[in-house]
Design a protein around this nucleic acid. Structure first.
Length: 419
DNA sequence: TCTGGGGTCCTAGGACCC
DNA sequence: TCTGGGGTCCTAGGACCC
């Protein structure tokens, strides 16, 4: 038996915890650059505001209905998420798989139906008390069915739904839209609907051979899970990343090499910290540039280039040097750029790094310096010590006009309460 | 004016090995 | 006349997730 716990309207709900005036009101959270809507309170959903809708299309409804708008504040969401997961882990009978910022799975093997429901309601009550957030809980024999149960739970006042028994499950899947299944994206949904397969139950009734041929082994796994055969195990240990990247759109178009280079250096530094945190070195670095595809008037350009790094490294200084080299190769003047990005792949553990015959650098010394920088930045704030190439003016930085405070992680930004 | 960011996995095809 | 068998690795493209 598998449970999944999911925070309702996660980002919007977190903002509402810290801004009582926005509770029970339509409230949305925007993507980076305040570009599109990525989270909506129940009231905002009721107004018909769609997920991923661009803000300029929502302008009218925002003004007319007094919708409260926030930029995304990942420091705050990350910390609140950790508090929720921590709370759940004290009550859950098994280790959690933290699947995303707002969801976790855990096993309930060995619990009776009553125990499952009791644990679920304990979790709901305690998370609400500890964090002010509401969670929904789905319980079923497989992950795919638990996800479906979770979706159904959101429509119930109790916020908990358990699916068990082959026939009961069939009944629930009968009016479950196929596109709402975990693992069915818009491509497969279109294809299935064209064949008249519009519910989860109809998908479950298709023969395995058809599934395998048209939806690869991933589809096959999903199909078996719908039949109650668990194929996707709970993984409570998070594996190391196989790729680490950063690519953000600019707040305004960027045309100069120097500004592109500043932004790229910043993104490389961010990736390098993550790389060192998982104790890896990287041997492949790619850089890409992009103009704004939505802008039909300006001429468009995009390009990317990859090089192998020998010996593999995780030093920010070296990575910035390689990234600059690549940017110089693909940057063309005369365009209005929207985005620059970097992707690191080809990881090796840092303690078994392959050396290089002609490498003369004193790596022990460079690593020690890097460690000192990381320690300072960890204790104080991010980028307290940084490379000059990361820039100071930062005119390329993303737009975040409605950013809330980092209430739970910066003492200077703690919530003030008037009595 | 204005449309996010960061990931994973699978498959097919080509190059290459002995 | 006629040209094997059993593999690995890499890449691009496409699907998916939150």
């Amino acid at each position: 038996v598998i449970a999944i716990v999911d925070i309702n309207n996660c980002f919007a709900s977190i903002e509402q915890v810290f801004a009582p005036k926005s509770r029970n009101k339509p409230c949305i959270v925007l993507s980076n650059n305040d570009g599109a809507c990525v989270a909506r309170s129940a009231e905002a959903k009721a107004l018909g505001i769609k997920m991923a809708a661009p803000v300029f299309e929502l302008k009218e409804i925002i003004e007319r209905e007094g919708v409260i708008v926030y930029s995304s504040n990942y420091v705050l969401y990350g910390d609140m998420s950790a508090r929720v997961m921590n709370t759940i882990s004290f009550i859950a009978p098994a280790p959690l798989e933290v699947y995303s910022i707002d969801e976790c799975f855990f096993s309930m093997d060995g619990c009776s139906q009553d125990q499952c429901l009791q644990i679920a309601s304990d979790i709901r009550r305690t998370v609400k008390q500890n964090t002010g957030l509401t969670v929904s809980i789905g319980i079923a024999p497989t992950k795919v069915l638990a996800k479906a149960a979770n979706k159904l739970a959101k429509k119930l006042p109790a916020g908990i739904r358990m699916l068990d028994g082959y026939l009961n499950i069939a009944k629930a899947l009968m009016d479950f839209p196929v596109e709402d299944l975990w693992g069915i994206g818009h491509r497969y949904a279109e294809k299935l609907k064209r064949l008249g397969v519009d519910t989860a139950l109809k998908l479950r009734c298709l023969p395995e051979s058809w599934i395998k041929q048209n939806m690869t082994v991933l589809g096959l796994r999903l199909h078996k899970e719908l039949h109650g055969i668990s194929c996707i195990p709970i993984e409570s240990l998070t594996p190391d990343r196989k790729a680490i990247g950063s690519a953000k759109s600019f707040g305004k178009p960027v045309e100069t090499f120097s500004e592109m280079h500043e932004a790229l250096s910043q993104y490389v530094a961010t990736c390098a910290v993550k790389l060192r945190n998982q104790k890896n070195c990287t041997s492949l670095i790619s850089v890409f540039v992009q103009t704004n595809f939505f802008n039909k008037k300006d001429k468009q350009y995009s390009n990317f280039r990859t090089i192998t790094i020998t010996p593999a490294t995780n030093l920010t200084s070296e990575l910035i040097k390689h990234a600059s080299f690549l940017l110089r190769k693909i940057f063309k003047p005369g365009y209005k750029y929207k985005r620059v990005g970097v992707l690191l792949t080809g990881f090796t553990p840092d303690h078994v790094r392959q050396g290089h015959l002609f490498d003369t650098k004193d790596r022990a010394k460079l690593s020690a310096a890097q460690k000192a920088i990381d320690a300072i930045n960890k204790r104080h704030s991010r980028d307290q010590v940084r490379f000059a190439s990361m820039g100071f003016e930062r005119r390329w930085q993303m737009k975040q006009e409605k950013l809330s405070k980092r209430f739970t992680t910066q003492i200077e930004e703690i919530l003030t309460v008037y009595v």
